[in-house]
Design a protein around this nucleic acid. Structure first.
Lengths: 336, 336
DNA sequence: TTCCCAATTTAGATCGATCCAAATGGGAAG
DNA sequence: CTTCCCATTTGGATCGATCTAAATTGGGAA
């Protein structure tokens, strides 16, 4: 009842010392086979659970990692998380989750709390306006760090993310191949690497394809914000025939907004998203998008972190997942 | 660099004993104001971070709780999580997250791991086919337990969830008020309390409204599964005029499936979902659903757990959130 | 039979913070 | 000038596991 089973208890019952039980727990080859079996049986009998907090005091690994994401509503982050959790679960590790709500102050508090809990490493999707020196600071604290999806303080830490430059290119070439010449981009206002990367891809693609920049409209990162932006897009001096969106959430909102304005997405205006959230296929018309495989990115981030925890001095690595174009109805048929 | 700052270090620099610093850390009223200020300054200077694992060895609280969910893809769970995380963050607590993938074996492993990490309590959304004795076992391990969203071993633990009996009633009365008399239910096969509750609500509502049971069709819990079920629903001997769905994911899938079969949801067949996921508003036609406020449920579950950790002997409590009907387009206009 | 070595096992110190019981110090009361 | 008291502070033991260095064991070689 009140008494928790400790190494000491197991040792007493099995008639050996704590040290020996400890060796058995850690599967050391030093213990004799017979002893190991006996001890393991006692551990099972008593329902012994190793206290990892206590163990961490002496060795160092807590087998705990922290993940900081800026929100938990967009299912992109969720799938990402599930990839991280999958890999960490395999390694008998445990995941601390926290939501920074894109607020750097909250993010600092979270990291402080994580430190107090002795995490071995952190997967960080940095909040907007995070101090670029943060990753460096984390490393000084002896924390393994991997940035994911967004990146600040370039080149200081490992990184896992999607290749949005390429993804934007895929989407743009698709639109151009359908005959679109004037293409707008529905962006977010927040200054993150995610935005910069997409804009860079856009510029490259515009040059490469010779298409016309149909205007860059900024919306709040929510479907409502995107819906409201529909009017602004329709009022652009030279109305674009297609809109590429920052992500599927905005694309879905834009389609709803277009409908409110009496336009049919995919017919009156082509719409393409990025990320290929599950909802892309459920919309009507279904949404053409570029799949970025968030769960896979989560797995890669987790593996990078595992590697970094094993060797703090290994060279910096980047794992970049390329997107895959999913052509559906919202990009419409070939025009003109 | 390598040296971590400990209580000892702070004590030496501030010229007091470890015990005093410890009292300051824990905001004990026993220390003199002047001493407190000096120590706090030194703590800030040295960037001291309290090691919670070490602290837990003596007191007991680890300020860590675990959350087990059966999946991370449905955004319902994600929003739920974000409610939990919100409340725990306020209390300087930390959340361990794990995904059981609806597998009781994995779930056992997770709970074992959580125990090893010394969690103070667990919020459990039990996996399918979980041994009903599990909650009792958890309590024997001195863990505070709250079940959420699903429930097994009734009455053994606190519970937070949505009132789906009532939610189904709201949806059914809405459909009946529109003139529907033959209403089908699109369910899932898995035997969970979530399913039982909805079916109970359905039966009550059928009696209450005098509507006809239009058939109960079972689908896999995924939108693809629901899409495939559309054909089966259309082939029912007496075709229903409306379908109430287990949740919005199935409803969205069903609408896609109806479209594939050449039917227009909301016109040829009314569709109503449950949960009111964000996607409900983005679909076309937008989906009539019953909002269950998962984030709020998460908050309530978290508060129940906090209460339970404070007092293990308090009477069992249940926090039930009632749903709110959101009438949109998919339920169509009044018929006949 | 004795000695040495390799294979196992162990006692004791240790990690960082908290608890306890006891020490300290300054002022009020006698 | 004592004595007592209260507010503060403190050393040492402790939580449960791991590390280190040293002790024990059994078997084979000399």
């Amino acid at each position: 009842m009140q008494g928790k089973v400790t190494l000491q208890d197991v040792a007493r019952v099995a008639g050996v010392s704590r040290a020996t039980v400890s060796l058995v727990v850690r599967k050391s080859p030093l213990v004799a086979e017979a002893t190991r079996l006996r001890v393991e049986e006692v551990m099972a009998d008593l329902d012994y659970v190793r206290d990892i907090g206590a163990a961490r005091l002496r060795d160092k690994s807590s087998r705990t990692i922290g993940v900081v994401v800026p929100n938990l509503v967009n299912s992109f982050f969720t799938e990402f998380l599930s990839g991280v959790e999958l890999v960490m679960g395999e390694g008998e590790r445990v995941v601390l989750l926290a939501n920074s709500q894109d607020d750097p102050i909250r993010q600092d508090e979270i990291l402080h709390r994580f430190r107090g809990h002795g995490v071995d490493g952190v997967i960080l999707c940095p909040a907007q306006d995070t101090d670029p020196r943060l990753p460096g600071r984390l490393r000084q604290w002896d924390l393994a760090v991997v940035q994911a999806l967004r990146e600040i303080g370039i080149e200081e830490t490992d990184f896992a993310g999607g290749d949005y430059i390429d993804a934007v290119g895929l989407a743009m070439r698709h639109l151009v191949s359908l005959g679109h010449r004037r293409i707008a981009f529905l962006s977010v206002a927040a200054q993150t690497s995610a935005r910069a990367e997409r804009l860079k891809g856009l510029m490259q693609a515009l040059i490469e394809t010779g298409a016309e920049n149909g205007g860059i409209v900024e919306a709040e990162l929510s479907w409502e914000g995107a819906a409201r932006s529909a009017a602004r897009i329709l009022e652009l001096p030279a109305r674009p025939t297609a809109v590429l969106c920052f992500n599927d959430v905005l694309a879905a909102g834009l389609m709803a907004g277009l409908r409110q304005a009496g336009k049919v997405p995919g017919r009156d205006m082509a719409v393409v998203g990025l990320d290929d959230l599950p909802l892309a296929e459920l919309l009507h018309p279904s949404l053409t998008s570029v799949a970025m495989m968030p769960q896979r990115i989560g797995e890669l981030a987790a593996r990078l972190l595992v590697g970094r925890m094993a060797d703090a001095k290994a060279p910096i690595q980047r794992s970049i997942v390329s997107g895959q174009l999913k052509v559906r109805e919202s990009s419409g048929n070939r025009i003109i």
